[in-house]
Design a protein around this nucleic acid. Sequence first.
DNA 1: TGTTAGCACTCAACTCGGTCGAGTGCTAAC
DNA 2: GTTAGCACTCGACCGAGTTGAGTGCTAACA
Lengths: 341, 341
Amino acid sequence: MIMDERKFLILQAIVDDYITTAAPVGSRTISRKSGVGFSPATIRNEMSDLEQLGYLAQPHTSAGRVPSYKAYRLYVDQLLNVSKLPPEEREKMNAYLSKKTDQVGTLIRSAAAVISDATRYTSVIVAPKLSTLRIRNLQMVPVSDTLALMVIVTNAGIVKDTVIRVPEGITPDMLYEISRMLTEQLADKPIEAVRQLFAELIRDMGEHRRLLAEAMQVIEEKMTHADESDVVIGGGANMLSYPEYQDAGKAQNFLSVLESRDKLQKALAGGSGMEVTIRIGPENGLPELSDCSVLTATYQAGDDSVGRLGIIGPTRMNYSRAISVLRYVGMALSELLSDRK
Amino acid sequence: MIMDERKFLILQAIVDDYITTAAPVGSRTISRKSGVGFSPATIRNEMSDLEQLGYLAQPHTSAGRVPSYKAYRLYVDQLLNVSKLPPEEREKMNAYLSKKTDQVGTLIRSAAAVISDATRYTSVIVAPKLSTLRIRNLQMVPVSDTLALMVIVTNAGIVKDTVIRVPEGITPDMLYEISRMLTEQLADKPIEAVRQLFAELIRDMGEHRRLLAEAMQVIEEKMTHADESDVVIGGGANMLSYPEYQDAGKAQNFLSVLESRDKLQKALAGGSGMEVTIRIGPENGLPELSDCSVLTATYQAGDDSVGRLGIIGPTRMNYSRAISVLRYVGMALSELLSDRK
DNA sequence: TGTTAGCACTCAACTCGGTCGAGTGCTAAC
DNA sequence: GTTAGCACTCGACCGAGTTGAGTGCTAACA
């Protein structure tokens, strides 16, 4: 048995219908649809074939059919046509986002809100990771005799800070001088390259070795351990409005994923290109999200990919709309981050 | 009719029982309890009185009784004895918290997690507000020719930063000098007092007037507009495990409050002293939380009250435990923030 | 040979009546 | 004042019956 034109057509109609109703789809329903000119009986035969092929499943004998993950995969890969967002909607999003451009954190939170409002799904954005950024300025601000705050300003105006210990005998003015020197040395270098530069500096400049070593260690740590605060969620409660999540246990299960930064990071990871990556149901690897789909994309600051943004929704989500919203917001975010001088 | 000793005893037993079972309490149940030596019939008479007095309500004639808000209020005010946390539990919390003391943000997130883990309710912590802090160091770090990052380090090592515009012709070294001067002038002053100092400075130092004015305006804004990121939530999904919130609509309603920083701020506001404030059901003013109770307390950095922390749970929450956890974590948080030199 | 009408069959969802049991209020006795 | 007893109430639960959406199969048709 092989998939022919008509099977595609019928499968598409079934998925389309299921996406909006969340109820098993029967042969009559499909037959009634415009564009499909066959009787219910014919449709039934085809549906039976599609079930055989693994694209459909029946909850029980006398129910309609429900698309399988395989069906969604096919639907997304071949049957989907992504429409552009209407201009007025783009305009609205743009207006909302460009108001919030001052602080990167706020911008990202707003972007998450825009996505979840526009799709009614849950949105997740990973803030720019230190390891993908370039240093623009590094400054150590004294906090007390023994502590300083190391502030790293990166491209796109993204700021990271940490407390570091300062060896005895280093005055605020010395801190400033060292910061200036470091900034000069490190400016515009990607953080990846900083390690080596630091090693050289520590070798050449014996006198502040301890301070530099401390700073290096902190940067190192910041780069490897993702900061908890760096994942932003929008519309976490949206999922509860879908019939799939009326069951409180399931809902709690889903929400617990949102509360675990680790799992979220894992869900968003992978897929490096600019294009939207789609993981359907079990494909995303997290058992808790086995009946969700996760769409992810990358956003940039300048020419560097700096973070990922994503949408989590039920497998029967409106992929077309989700994709276009994700694309658009990703683009807008990249632009706003790159504009910052 | 008046509340006598026995009525108190019975009401207490009813509330105690309802808190653990969430099911209407019948006269037999109370009669069986140790400490109450009356027959069901007597209890019924008393319960009838208590209903008349507004402390109990009946879902329907042949069900048991459910405590009203008035009953919880009485229970909390007069019938509750708050036990201390067992030492091993304190120890565990302490150990977990003191590991996280490096970054204030992380510390607060951990504290929220500790509270929600210990109580199985939802915890909320408002990060230290700028207006309650003292400046320790102020530094402007150049980001580009026209932008700088103003970093304000406050007591307790809490850091706030904002991007500000820099008028043309101001070099990084000048920024440093100005920062140094400002730090000298402002150090250890509460932010409340900064306004006036700034005004004086702007008057006296004509040359950098524009920069100072910009900085002032930004500080002003930061002080009045609470930052979105400053509210941290722990265990938002916990509520879903209680029978009161099995209904998806109710659950969504509750979660939407957690997503609105405004409403959360409002829920936590008020009650300035160190003691735990308890708002039961409608008392908290938010219709969305009308069947929740909100406990709030204040935490300090040094001698200044800097933020609030709270627990949101069902009205039938275990007040005794919630209060002791909130007290303990509030104290621990204050200590950890004050220790920072 | 592919399509369709017809028909028997399946099964969840809903309805309805009956039973069960937890709980109440009232009354009368202790 | 307290309590035992009893009639009553009412949601929860159970099982039988009905409904309706949907299927698979077969035979007829183009």
